[in-house]
């Protein structure tokens, strides 16, 4: 059941990205190109998505449980720290360079787009690099904790 709902969610998400035009890097770049010939469409994508999601999340927050009665696994973090700021900056630069963010890249992959495939392969190297970095960092923290004790 949970696999089915995750699959349905992914399918709807992908259809939404296609309909919204986000799978076209040129449209995304035209949105980011505010000093050029600006295409404001993506602002409406965000408004539609956030508006619809806000209703659902408010309901989920009130229930505190999923419909099948399991725990919600939602982040409760509130701190604004260096990783958030540096990470978002790097992401923004990459987004502006490629015109793809992760979702449209994956959708474009199966649609047979070579640029999307190149992007997604690089994306996985980036994700893997972070997994490695994160592990090293945890290891360093653990070593320091041992040295301190």
């Amino acid at each position: 059941m949970k696999l089915l709902t995750a699959f349905i969610s992914g399918t709807l998400f992908g259809l939404g990205l296609i309909l919204a035009g986000m799978t076209d890097p040129l449209k995304v770049l035209a949105f980011l190109d505010v000093t050029g010939r600006w295409d404001p469409s993506l602002a409406l994508v965000m408004i539609g998505a956030i508006g619809c999601a806000a209703v659902g999340f408010a309901y989920a927050g009130k229930r505190r449980r999923t419909l099948p009665d399991d725990d919600l696994q939602l982040s409760t973090r509130r701190e604004i720290n260096a990783p958030l700021i540096v990470g978002s900056t790097l992401f923004g630069i990459g987004w502006g360079l490629a015109g793809y963010c992760p979702g449209p890249g994956v959708v474009g992959l199966w649609a047979g787009s070579l640029p999307a495939a190149v992007f997604v392969i690089a994306l996985f190297f980036g994700l893997e690099a972070h997994a490695w970095y994160d592990q090293e960092r945890r290891q360093d923290d653990a070593d320091e904790a041992v040295a301190d004790s």
Binding site: S9, L12, L17, I18, V45, G48, G51, A53, G56, D71
Partner: peptide, 24 residues
Amino acid sequence: QALSGGILIGFASVVLVLWNGRIA
């Protein structure tokens, strides 16, 4: 297209949080 695509994306994330309890 942008607005309806956005609503579909939002609806997809509602499906995932209500049934799987996860962030899309």
